[in-house]
Design a protein around this nucleic acid. Structure first.
Lengths: 350, 350
DNA sequence: ATGAAAGCGCTAACAT
DNA sequence: ATGTTAGCGCTTTCAT
């Protein structure tokens, strides 16, 4: 509560600064700064004096000022299409954990799935001068991508494997997911297929790739239900209900395989099937995507495509952190792959 | 790529600044600043010149500098116990939406459910000088709460109704949830109860309040399964399995009511019941919490306690924004309440 | 190991 | 409506 003498043109007094701490500790401000940023560069005795002064004053460093002066914000922007999509939450969690541990903080950006305000979001983010940016998916407009390249900030794109990454990249091939799922299901004996999807860009690519592979195998008549919005249990139920309207599997027909672009949709399909007394896997097969934490515990257990979201996030954070420590590092591209998990929901007997 | 002449003691050149834009537009830096912060205070003609200069240079404002100079960061820290808990994602989404719209950005803080590193997280957050802080739940240690009060930053606590809020508050009474659930279920005719909970502090308070109400009604023998960690479908299945080991409801016994502190656990209970052929609601009743988006679409549909997470988030953001506009505003406390939703899973016939 | 000077990029406050 | 000056709180750079 010491009343400071305002300078002739000074502003109203603010909180406790590093100068206050320095004065109390009887050292130069620069020494306090050293204590904060590299304690080992300060003598033990001095360190104690400063420590005491900090506790006594309740000083909290002002990182706005330190970021400005040092040209390092220790901020990393993480851009998600949607905070409510549980597919990304493991990734997000892992990213945040690693970054915090390394002394960085996460600035959140939510892009939505449409590209309208993308440029604006990007400017808002860049205005904070983050030391790095982690994108979920990739930016949609070329203008945005160019701006990001121009900003010369390290960027990691995730959850995808594109042709021309902005910088670093960690993901997997959605095309390969689609075709491998098709091949596996064909090998299991399925011949009748339906598709349940929501309209997110990567999910649609998986779906298209699946359809292509099926067509190549001579299966062209695949019923499709594509919804707008996020995948929900409700959409899954509705989707199956719609599919069954013109194709109700009887004991005589071979089982129908419903491929979903998300475990959540698939869970809804299982639920609707149970509600209608349609036995899975005997007359209906279900395939999900994501291997989310519930997939192995649905009834019956859900076959799906496993993506290790936590590993993906950890990898993205590590790539970025390594670059921040060694700016010369080349831009890596990491394919973390995926694996097909066969559980009860695809175990029809042919 | 214009090589700037470094001052005698200058640092290596950085990006394009407001001064560069001003020079190109032929105005003073302050005029550019005005254009950015209050375009209406600048003449149309000048505005166009500046606009052009900005586009031409690709200038992006440096908010680190502007925050430092203006003592307003336009940053709001949002603290979550865990990013992967879907209970909070609607709230988080709503908060982020409102804040972005109002020109604020979200700085994420993940506290975990234990209080060990709470103080450190708090300092990390305060060091960015956020204009406000939104907490999910409340801080655990008195030291943290004191430090936050001392920082004189607007704070909104959410998802709870505590006795001594730090500042603003929006939530509901977990105690009342517990007792009202008990009373409702008793009125429905249930007399045999079991409890399934995870060890989050608010969930445990709901549970305790439920148990108290049941005891008052003369029902003291309530089997309990309390797990550590986040609520998952798997935990719900395991929980029911464990409960059934020493209490398998027969057609002769009155139905067993399993009250869960989370819809996700309840969903697991429904799943395990289906897997074991135990009919819900005839022999087993299930009650959830949260009314998450799947609750009305499980089979059978799940009775639960509805909390409007999106409304809660919007309310929290609005309280904060109002305070930021009118600092004299008193600290409001908002009880957003809850409602009991009766669906199929509690429709036993007595 | 510590200090002094200069300046990061912007805006508040006071002109005009 | 626009310009001038000082300074936000810190760190870089150079000196001791």
């Amino acid at each position: 509560m010491t009343a400071k003498q305002p300078g002739s043109k000074g502003r109203s007094t603010r909180g406790i600064t590093l100068v206050d701490v320095a004065r109390l500790a009887g050292v130069a401000p620069m020494t306090v700064s050293r204590y904060l940023n590299a304690p080992d560069a300060v003598r033990e005795e001095t360190r104690l004096k400063i420590q005491q002064a900090i506790v006594q004053t309740g000083y909290v460093q002002n990182r706005l000022a330190s970021s400005l002066a040092s040209n390092r914000s220790r901020l990393v922007a993480v851009v998600l299409p949607m905070v409510t999509n549980p597919l990304f939450s493991d990734t997000f969690q892992a990213i945040n954990e690693r970054l915090m541990q390394a002394g960085y903080q996460v600035l959140l950006g939510v892009s939505g799935y449409q590209s309208e305000q993308e440029q604006h979001l990007l400017d808002v983010i860049l205005s904070r001068r983050p030391d790095g940016i982690i994108l979920t998916g990739t930016l949609h407009t070329q203008a945005s991508r160019a701006r990001l390249r121009a900003a010369a900030v390290p960027v990691v794109e995730t959850w995808d494997l594109t042709d021309d990454p902005i910088d670093m990249l960690v993901g997997f091939s959605h095309e390969r997911v689609g075709s491998e799922v098709a091949q596996r299901l064909l090998r299991l004996g399925y011949r009748r297929f339906a598709l349940l999807a929501v309209d997110d860009p990567r999910g649609l690519r998986r779906a298209q790739s699946l359809l292509d592979a099926l067509t190549q195998a001579g299966i062209g008549d695949v019923q499709q239900q594509i919804f707008a919005g996020l995948p929900t249990l409700e959409q899954g139920r509705r989707g199956l209900a719609a599919l069954l309207e013109n194709d109700w599997p009887t004991p005589q027909t071979p089982p129908l395989m419903v491929v979903c672009t998300s475990d959540t949709l698939a869970h809804g399909v299982l639920t609707e099937a149970a509600a209608r007394g349609l036995p899975v896997p005997e007359r209906l097969g279900v395939m999900g995507f994501g291997d989310m934490n519930f997939a192995s515990h649905t009834f019956p257990a859900l076959s799906t495509v496993r993506i290790d979201g936590a590993q993906l996030g950890a990898c993205a954070a590590d790539l970025l952190l390594r670059r921040l420590q060694q700016p010369e590092q080349v831009a890596e591209i990491v394919d973390i792959g995926f694996s097909l998990i066969e559980r009860q929901s695809t175990r029809a007997v042919f």
